[in-house]
């Protein structure tokens, strides 16, 4: 008798989850697909980064090669004086090569939260670009016609400084539209907008990323990354992801 009861209960449960899964993808699913849509197997991009401060703006151009989320290589191409500076990221480590001083420097842990190239991104943002699905519990906080609203709470062990991340995900592309970072007290620290989604072959990708820091000491700051050109899932030479590449591909 009791066995039968349990069985029916189980079957009901199964049916219920199955039916909801058909209606909307599960929250974890959304997060995983967003992540996949943002990185892809491999990616080559040409980017322009514009850093605005109270005092003016500065433009940089660069090329980036990435394989998955763990390995990437960046070369600065503009302005001329910075041209040839390269960065290599493998897992959690980051190296930098500066042609002017002909030196490869491993960025020490103590510099990880310093600004990257004067932007509102930190070295850590580039390196740890932390895996949201691994580091956060996601919960659906709401949805409308076009967007899911996700609340991401860090898992207890996750080495991330944010107290909460709120992510607007476009239903059409399953790409983030706006990501808001909060501290533990619930104060908004920074907002990252993903704008102007364009098609690149099979894939859609946001081509304008805008980072808006909210803290008082960074008032008037804004960093925009504009993706001029991108090729996804093409073959990328493994040679880019070695320390030798830093100097070799500097030119």
């Amino acid at each position: 008798m009791t066995h039968l009861k349990r069985l029916t209960a189980a079957i009901f449960c199964l049916l219920w989850t199955a039916s909801t899964a058909v209606a909307t993808p599960s929250v974890d699913d959304i997060v995983k697909r967003v992540e996949a849509n943002l990185s892809g197997e491999t990616a080559f991009m040409r980017l322009t980064m514009v850093v605005r401060t109270k005092r003016g703006k500065r433009t940089m151009k660069m090329e980036s090669w990435a394989k998955g989320r763990d390995r990437s290589f960046i070369r600065i191409t503009y302005p001329g004086k910075d041209s040839g500076i390269t960065f290599l990221k493998i897992d959690n480590a980051m190296w930098q090569y500066v042609p002017r001083i002909e030196k490869t420097i491993k960025i020490p842990a103590s510099m990880m939260l310093q600004s990257w190239m004067g932007s509102d991104f930190t070295n850590d943002d580039l390196v740890r670009e932390s895996s949201i699905s691994e580091d956060y519990h996601a919960a659906l906080a709401g949805e409308n016609e076009t967007e899911y609203l996700l609340d991401l709470h860090p898992r207890e062990e996750a080495p991330v400084v944010w107290g909460r991340i709120r992510m607007h995900v476009s239903k059409e592309y399953l790409l983030p539209a706006r990501v808001s970072y909060y501290d533990e007290e619930g104060r908004l620290v920074r907002v990252l907008d993903y704008l102007e989604v364009k098609p690149f072959g099979e894939r859609h990708y946001p081509t304008r990323w805008r980072m808006l820091p909210q803290s008082l000491d960074r008032e008037g700051h804004l960093t925009e990354v504009i993706i001029e050109h991108a090729v996804f899932d093409a073959e990328i030479d493994e040679a880019y992801f070695t320390k030798r590449a830093l100097k070799r591909f500097s030119q």
């Binding site: 959690n92 480590a93 842990a109 990880m112 390196v127 991330v160």
Partner: peptide
């Protein structure tokens, strides 16, 4: 906390 581990890799702990 972030620090270099014995293999000189940066590790972090919350």
């Amino acid at each position: 906390l972030s620090a270099q581990n014995r293999d000189n890799e940066v590790t972090a702990l919350a």
